[in-house]
Design a protein around this nucleic acid. Structure first.
Length: 645
RNA sequence: GGGUCCGUGGCGCAGACUGGAUAGCGCGUCGGCCUUCUAAGUCGAUGGUCGUGGGUUCAAAUCCCACCGGACCCGCCA
């Protein structure tokens, strides 16, 4: 790994403490330095408590001895060294040299500062992959933003990344929506096409659920099972409520689909037949289902383009898994193993047997029985996870590692997928398959449900964000042209949504509220963008020829404001590699926010344009470097950095 | 019922992988700062037994166990 400026300082500290301890006859095999809780304790520190414990010495004496040795050694970036706290060796940066080094490296590398130059192997990041039956809602938005940020960060860390969108057009839901679309006749989209499909799907699933529940309730009443019937009636009420909301949006279209479904004896079996025909590539089914999927995808592309999310590959499930026969082949291969049973015409993988026989329970932290996985329906069609096994093999022909960004709800099927790979003798692939799971986005008061048409669409969040940003920029910068205010509003509004989606750790649920997502104050994209705009403004006012200030004098850059800023800039490459290693895109958001915060303190306390000569030159370099690193950090989370706001 | 994840001031979060010095930040509330590089900023005040109880350790928000609370999963859906 190439060294960040801070990494060089760390290396020097490690070398100094190693040498000192060796001279004292106390060598630790691994030196671990920590960043102190307070900068009064230095920039890195070493704790001698553990050494004191194992060597039976007083930690304080060890620390004091080490400091004496280090003080006598040659130092480059390390300035002062102190012992403190009864067992710490605290290292302080020599700011003049460190500023020169850090700002020199940033100036030299420019936009590539923070990016790794080492190539580190290929990886497919599969993300978003929203079913083409409704628009991308806020839950899918979280997936899309996380996946896109992961792709950007891994790419920055030297991985050869391909972003893939898996189009699940062989799913039952798509068949259902397509069945409804068939009933809609000549109705065409008046709105964005994926929103239109979302409406069709919700109406269809409502109508079908209501019909099914009514029949089930009848049967239960005939059988005198009143208790169960009451439960179903509650469910039915919920669907009827959803249906009423949908009907209010477009009565004519609603009635056409709803009446159509009422007239059919068994719509569920009709949907299943449609799906079967699609898997068999029947041309009528293909036309209908592909037509619907394309409509939805056109909408997705529009939305994703707007937020700067692009894909290297759009993978049709039908082509890769069903029509190519690869899913069928997976079933055949698995059927030959001892793990698959044929029950009532279905193929079932005994996941539990795979886990126990191949001793995978401990590896995957499984403490209970793993439920079996049905591979094929009794009508011969395949199930999602089965096709996903085939798709996974397909992806492994194209990359060494796979990261699937899929919500936590699919934890079990993702585990079963790995177990299935092991059953196939492809355990090595399973080990290079990562399920990057993230928690759901909840709505306050009700549960999101595409089937009921109850969700908040990503498009609506973006529009609202941009509208609010436009009002904000108009109020603050009325002198800018409308065109420029529109452009800034787009960057700021969308940035704030992206930031909100990425800033919370992915294993924590988010409760969606407009004010939280569209926050323009601290800990938000606009806050960071604003710091960037301020830095840009200083540079613009400084003019194009900073060289006339003379050579930079870094000995004049000694305040804590400047120091904190420089240290922050110097750790950026480490933040990128840590975020890539631990798959934590939120680290970039946090870093950018902290950097902006440090810059604001510097901005309010340290004059730049009014400084003179070499000091002015040094500060201008610092501002330039800050502007650059903010932009670099933001670009890794897909947020643009405007120069005016 | 079983499993997984989460629980940090009134609200929203960071810190937990890799234990270390006084637990950080934002919002909110109250009070300041624009004749000085854009106030989407900033300063001060307010507010926390880090869910509870044990354990390990020189040292626990962090590791282990139990319990409580919430979310999610346990389909011939995805």
């Amino acid at each position: 790994m190439e060294d960040s400026p801070f990494g060089l300082f760390r290396k020097e500290c490690v070398a100094l403490i190693t040498d000192a301890l060796r001279q004292e006859g106390l060598l630790e095999k691994e030196i671990r330095l920590t960043v102190p809780s307070d900068s009064a304790y230095g920039d890195l520190s070493f704790s001698t408590f553990a050494l004191g414990k194992s060597a039976g010495n007083d930690p304080r004496l060890i620390a004091e001895g080490a400091v004496k040795r280090i003080e006598a050694s040659h130092r480059e970036l390390v300035g002062k060294v102190e012992s403190a706290g009864g067992g710490y060796v605290n290292f302080f940066i020599d700011l003049t040299r460190f500023a020169e080094l850090t700002l020199g490296v940033i100036g030299e590398k420019g936009r590539s500062y923070g990016l790794s130059t080492t190539k580190r192997g290929s990886v497919i990041v599969e993300h978003t992959s929203v079913n083409p039956i409704h628009p991308i809602h806020v839950g899918g938005a979280r997936n899309a933003v996380i996946g896109d940020c992961l792709s950007r960060i891994l790419r920055a860390a030297g991985r050869e990344v391909k972003a893939h969108f898996y189009i699940d057009d062989v799913g039952l839901q798509v068949a259902q929506a397509s069945y409804g679309l068939g009933m809609a006749g000549s109705a065409r989209a008046k709105e964005k096409s994926d929103h239109f499909i979302g409406f069709i799907y919700a109406v269809t699933s409502c109508a079908m659920s209501i019909k099914r529940l009514r029949m089930e309730i009848e049967e239960l009443k005939v059988g005198c099972k009143d208790e169960e019937a009451r439960g179903k009636i509650g469910e039915l009420d919920d669907w009827i409520g959803a249906a009423a909301d949908l009907r209010a949006k477009d009565e004519e279209l609603f009635d056409r689909i709803s009446d159509g479904i009422c007239a059919v004896q068994d719509p569920d079996s009709e949907v299943n037949k449609l799906l079967k025909r699609y898997e068999e590539k029947d041309s009528g089914a293909v036309k209908l289902i592909r037509g619907l999927s394309e409509l939805a995808l056109a909408g997705f592309r529009e939305t994703l383009d707007r937020v700067g999310i692009g894909f290297d590959s759009w993978d049709w499930e039908s082509e890769i898994t069903s029509w190519s026969g690869s899913a069928e082949k997976v079933v055949d291969r698995l059927a030959k193993t001892e793990y698959v049973e044929v029950e009532k015409g279905t193929y079932v993988l005994d996941s539990e047997l795979v886990a126990t026989k191949l001793k995978l329970k401990e590896k995957y932290g499984i403490r209970t029985e793993v439920p079996p996985l049905t591979l094929k329906r009794s009508d011969g069609t395949t199930l999602y996870t089965t096709r996903d096994i085939a798709y996974t093999l397909w992806k492994f022909e194209r990359a060494e590692e796979i990261i699937n960004v899929i919500s936590i709800e699919q934890k079990l099927p993702q585990l079963q997928l790995k177990l299935a790979l092991y059953a196939l003798g492809e355990g090595k692939l399973a080990d290079r398959l990562v399920h990057f799971s993230y928690e759901l986005v909840h709505l306050p008061g009700y549960k999101m449900s595409g089937r009921r048409g109850r969700f908040i669409a990503f498009d609506d969040v973006l529009s609202e964000g941009v509208d609010r940003a436009f009002r904000e920029v108009t109020e603050r910068s009325p002198h800018l042209s409308e065109e420029e205010r529109r452009r800034i509003a787009e960057v700021v509004g969308i940035g704030s949504v992206r930031y909100a989606m990425i800033a919370v750790a992915s294993n924590k649920p988010i409760t969606f509220t407009w004010d939280r997502v569209l926050n323009f104050e601290q800990n938000s994209a606009p806050f960071i963008q604003y710091a960037h705009a301020r830095a840009s403004n200083i540079l613009a006012k400084a003019g194009s020829d900073p060289a006339k200030c003379g050579p930079p004098d870094y000995s004049g850059v000694q305040s804590n404001y400047e120091k904190d800023l420089i240290v922050m800039l110097s750790i950026f490459p480490e933040v990128v590699s840590d975020a890539a290693r631990t798959l934590k895109p939120e680290m970039l958001a946090e870093f950018a926010n902290n950097l902006a915060s440090k810059f604001n303190l510097f901005y309010d306390n340290i004059p730049v344009l009014k400084a003179e000569g070499g000091i002015k030159a040094a500060r201008l370099n610092l501002v330039e470097a800050t502007k650059l690193v903010i932009a670099n950090a933001l670009s890794l989370i897909g947020i643009e950095a405007p120069s005016r706001m």
